[in-house]
Design a protein around this nucleic acid. Structure first.
Lengths: 112, 112
DNA sequence: CTAATAATAAACCAAATGGTTAAGTATCAA
DNA sequence: TTGATACTTAACCATTTGGTTTATTATTAG
């Protein structure tokens, strides 16, 4: 059983709470990239991006590998599993709401 | 199609990045609760909890309903759907890692 | 009406966050 | 060896966050 540590979820969810970092992860989902590659699309300084990478790394979502003077970054999606598992606990609540909507729409049908 | 706004995900993921707020959501999953009920298990002042509730409310994860002088709070899980959907994009990455692990363990078996 | 209860608002504070620029460290190329 | 390239570190700054205590505002109970 995978028991997640509360502080891990803190780090993962917090890391995901920033659009720049989500964009970086999305880019990494397409494949490995250097720090420079990851920084390019963003209108901010390289150190700023470097900090975001550090946050992702600390959350366990990114792995760096130094290769000469370029640092290659890989997505490490495994921590997302616990995040997804946590969220999944609440699935029935939003599904219930969808069911209610379906019921409502069905009711409308009958009125036609 | 449910197209999620980046800023909504910001709010939802950020809201989930705090253990007190996740605990509150977990409590709400058990059923409606007043602000006082929600505050009780936490070693912090009522205003502090009130602020957390505000954050959850802003993220769309909580709905308040005033009933006399007590405010009843309900879980509103629907925004978690988009969060889960976002994370799901990365599922194959952690599954790949699990596959690799399985392969490795299989290899070990053969060596016995 | 008065007092207690439930919750929010306001004012404040320390620490964390997200950005900047400038300096420093490896590494590769000429 | 001398630059240029690819980053990271350091120092700084403004804003946000997460907490506090002290009012305030509604509402119910006596």
């Amino acid at each position: 059983m995978v028991k997640y540590q509360s502080q891990d979820l803190d780090a993962v969810f917090s890391a995901l709470g920033d659009p720049t970092r989500r964009a970086i992860l999305a880019r990494l989902a397409l494949g490995e990239a250097s720090v420079g590659d990851l920084a390019a699309p963003h209108e901010m300084s390289l150190p700023a991006v470097s900090k975001h990478l550090r946050v992702l790394e600390t959350a366990g979502l990114l792995r760096k590998e130094k290769d000469g003077r370029v640092v290659r970054c890989r997505l490490e999606a495994e921590p997302l599993r616990d995040a997804a598992a946590w969220i999944a606990e609440y699935r029935r609540f939003w599904e219930a709401q969808l069911d209610a909507l379906a019921g409502y729409l069905e009711g409308l049908d009958e009125e036609v």
